[in-house]
Design a binder for these strands. Structure first.
Lengths: 239, 239
DNA sequence: CTTGACAGGTGTACGGCGTACACCTACCGT
DNA sequence: ACGGTAGGTGTACGCCGTACACCTGTCAAG
């Protein structure tokens, strides 16, 4: 009786509700505690109920990724390719930062979800419209690698285990190494502390992930721009 | 009796033997079938026996990573930073290609194994010796990202699921997309087929991962070199 | 030579996982 | 009124990592 009432009280299960709950759970508690059992409990339902709406856990993960990728800004048709690409990559970064589990999930999956393909396709479209040859566009996609999705496998990533163990405390950005480590790896110790971002006058010591990401992104984009101009020049020369 | 004989026949277990067997198993059967139980069976031993030599599976994985990272070429003290860095990154790539499970394992771990730190430290050392400021070296490490370890999360990676499901068949490099996909993502379809690597005359159509990796690597290294010269110039100017 | 500590392999067991399969039940179109 | 079906349930299986008690062979100290 009471059980019936509860059954009636809760919203009926649906693929959409499951996906939302899954993303919320992964956001809050980390991807490693997203089990079918936990998720079901979160929804007030028995684990096997989920399987009436998703084929299995892999499909669930794919759908979650698509949800996140869907948050990335659409392209701006008229715009300059470089600006537009930069903007979208940073938008991708924001999206993935809202869901710290996503990079790991993306890398783990087999990498062919529809939303992901659509995003990549649109990026290539921007390049082609910007005058890139199919060939050069191909190379550029490889060169950008996972950075095109807004992450770069930061080698010392504070935000990274957020994808595993839940929300991080804000955490001082990459504090200095423990002294015994610093002693054995002097060069790492040196660069860990030294990271002012302008020529001078930056308050926060330590490492600003966002700055580093944009630094690398612009390094790539500038190099790519040079390549494109080269290609254009040489095409003109042989005309 | 027979059991005793067998016990005596097999070499005594040791941390080293376990690590070797674990790497071999992951190489041959994929990281996902490296379970403590499988590994123990491979060694003709009961699962719990392993725990006399490794603390737990995480520690085992860390040790495996260190083994792989240890295969990377050491630096050449006198050499030009750019050449040396290029050579070592390509050496890292070779090492990780011998163990397709390693990139995923590295990304999954918490990223602080001794051999890895030593490698990174030596790379920074090369940069510093090459005249990079600690600051610029820091940025460069971020810019290189996982590429410094010889992989780059190729977005369509044929070799990638080798790390999961075992040795791949040689496999034609990134064959064309299935037609219904190609129709929905025209730009992807276009660049999937178009990928000649020189200006002309390349026999194999399709995508050569090694070429793409070096392309991106050189794009970065060239950009980095330019930055360094800039820094040097401006330092000279203000002298 | 005895003894007792200890290193190293064994057996059992627990809790968690994904999910196959049989079931039950409420609703809906005929 | 009734059969089908969509959707939630319960049980169970085979994996996983690993805690814990146990056994056994080796070897140093008495």
């Amino acid at each position: 009786m009471a059980e019936q009432a509860e059954t009636l009280r809760r919203a009926p299960l649906s693929r959409d509700r499951i996906l939302r709950a899954a993303v919320a759970l992964a956001d809050a508690a980390g991807i490693e505690s997203l089990s079918m059992r936990n998720l079901a409990q979160e929804l007030g339902v028995v684990p096997m109920a989920l399987y009436k709406h998703v084929a299995n856990k892999d499909e669930l993960l794919d759908a979650m990724i698509d949800l996140v990728v869907g948050e990335i800004d659409p392209p701006t048709p008229g715009a300059d390719w470089k600006q537009d690409l930069r903007r979208r990559v940073l938008s991708a970064r924001q999206a993935l930062r809202r869901h710290p589990w996503a990079p790991l999930a993306i890398e783990t999956r087999n990498m062919a979800t529809p939303a992901l393909l659509a995003y990549l396709d649109s990026v290539v479209g921007t390049l082609r419209a910007g005058g890139f040859s199919a060939n050069l566009a191909h190379h550029v996609m490889h060169a950008m690698g996972s950075r095109i999705l807004g992450f770069s496998q930061e080698l010392f990533d504070t935000a990274r285990d957020a994808g595993r163990s839940g929300r991080t405390t804000p955490a001082p950005p990459t504090a200095a190494l423990p002294p015994e480590v610093a002693a054995r790896f002097p060069h790492l110790a040196e660069i860990a502390t030294a990271a002012s971002h302008d020529d001078a006058s930056v308050v926060g010591q330590g490492c600003d992930d966002q700055f580093e990401f944009e630094f690398a992104l612009d390094l790539l984009l500038d190099g790519i721009e040079r390549l494109q101009q080269q290609a254009w020049t040489s095409a003109r020369r042989t005309r």
